[in-house]
Nucleic acid binder design. Sequence first.
DNA 1: CAGACGATTGTTAGCGTTCACAGCGCGGTT
DNA 2: AACCGCGCTGTGAACGCTAACAATCGTCTG
Lengths: 344, 344
Amino acid sequence: MDQPSPPRPAVMIDVARLAGVSHQTVSRVLNGHPSVRDETRERVLTAVRQLNYRPNALARGLAGRRSRVLGVVSFDTILYGPAATLLGVERAARAAGYGVSIVTLEQLDHDGVSDALSALAEQSVAGVVIIAPFTNTAAALRSLPIGIPAVVVEAGLSGALPAISVDQAAGTELAVRHLLELGHETVWHVRGPQNWLEARDREDAWRSTLEGAGRSVPPMIDGDWSARSGYEAGLRLAGDPRVTAVFCANDQQALGLLRAFHERGVRVPDDVSVVGFDDIPEAEFMSPPLTTIRQDFDEVGRRCLAMLLDLLDSPVEPPTYPRVMPVLVSRASTGIRPSVNGTA
Amino acid sequence: MDQPSPPRPAVMIDVARLAGVSHQTVSRVLNGHPSVRDETRERVLTAVRQLNYRPNALARGLAGRRSRVLGVVSFDTILYGPAATLLGVERAARAAGYGVSIVTLEQLDHDGVSDALSALAEQSVAGVVIIAPFTNTAAALRSLPIGIPAVVVEAGLSGALPAISVDQAAGTELAVRHLLELGHETVWHVRGPQNWLEARDREDAWRSTLEGAGRSVPPMIDGDWSARSGYEAGLRLAGDPRVTAVFCANDQQALGLLRAFHERGVRVPDDVSVVGFDDIPEAEFMSPPLTTIRQDFDEVGRRCLAMLLDLLDSPVEPPTYPRVMPVLVSRASTGIRPSVNGTA
DNA sequence: CAGACGATTGTTAGCGTTCACAGCGCGGTT
DNA sequence: AACCGCGCTGTGAACGCTAACAATCGTCTG
């Protein structure tokens, strides 16, 4: 009488009938409600297995208040930072029993964020992680009457929303100090795109670290995270004998810079030392291997999720989480010897 | 009497009341049903705007058959290929009015895929895109009684499921022929991880292209996509005078290889020519700039989605889409001059 | 002018779950 | 012996929407 593969997937009432209980009892078993007799629970679970029953998340979300899906708003998931954070969040979410719905931003203005958020709201996500570290995101978010708990990655602590961030200032300080300690008079900077918060933070910290050490602050060069922009910056810097140390706002830019230096016969680290930021997997194998600042994106993802789950439990008091601390990874692009140009 | 911001988000019945119609008429307007008087439609739309009403996707999915959410199963979304494909799929999905739910695979066996798929099934996704190009994925998928329409990326055409793929053989042939045409006697190969389909395809095509040209097939070197593995391969290859041309299974491996060669004083392209695969954004700025095979992942994403939507419309006849053709991007790592070692 | 038909709208039932509120049976109090 | 309370279970009503059918109106056909 058993058909081996039921044409229609089993629903709760099927399980209930097979187990000889009411659908509500099945629901209780599935949700870990305490007051169910062990024997009954067993019977239900057996039926669940037998029918290969899987609860319908849609119905669950509709009936109860909360869905088991989180939303992630991200931008350009090919970039290492966002991609790594996304992966971290997804893993942590899955471990906590949540699904993840993503929306990538095309435009990074108020409307973009707004659209993304309402797209997620339509799906009744329980909460949202926003990985959109732009300078104007904070403002956009503040003016959004989002009804959903949200956590922002790297949006500075300026916004009204609880945020997880890597301590960019600390990382930058590590980089700059490292170079100064190697004997460089000052450190040049190829900064990131101005509408990214990280880029701003790094630039600010670079400047203030230099100033704090009583060094002159050279004019900085523009970049946009891309290797190309680093390359162009490198061409500009290559001719200048004053340049003995460069701090790039990310590793891709550093790669381009290294390329330009190589082309122009500038030796790294003999003539110029170079430091990047991120520690992408390729950094170790650049020519020369790149000294850089490692950020633990996995940890960022994990904390994001922890924070968001806290927020779901008690929407009143947004807990503050400590910033994730980056570390310096010293490699050959600065390693060998401090070189102060002209000191022969 | 109006409260400016309703405490509870408006639902369909609210709109209906405000517009003086039944909730069903609202539903009709929202779903573009033809038989609604223009004047009525206007009234409803006005009410929708006024209440800032957004239909609840959960309820929609529950009541109707199909949800407007697609699932994506992916592996390691930090890798360039999968990340780029994911982004392409997400963009295309969003353009088509679909949300995207992702699950990343931890383990790449049957159970991993199975778990991921049922996690998505719970969310009642309308269809699934599987970006998990492993050799055993095909087998795992075939044995899965998935009830949801699915499209596989790069799973070869071996599986039972409709697939979109880049023509790996064509790309590899471009790479190998390019090297042969430059005058190299044969081409060495640093292959990718053996459980990846692309890696297999590229290795096979490398071998058969050489054989087809009547050249000897050197032993290939193992790699795992990482720059590190390319570096190790490079160290091994650097001492060998027979090695004048190397085809790496991806750009990261090529980067590591270049690093190793540089360390060992092997000049590229003077002593050895190197070709990669993927054309990651950094390829152009490696030292030297890397000749490589460009894959249009955006196009892959778009076709995936088109195919999946076709499948949703008519589950009977899975349409076949043409393979995406990669192109050769020639740069300095092979460009300058064909060098046949020993010909001084 | 009766009947039919198309366009438009309303009504009623679910979709598969959880929530709130009973019920039932049993042991321990008074 | 009647009562309360507790552990366990069942019943009915949402949740917000779409599907299927019924109802109404005006118009068209013969």
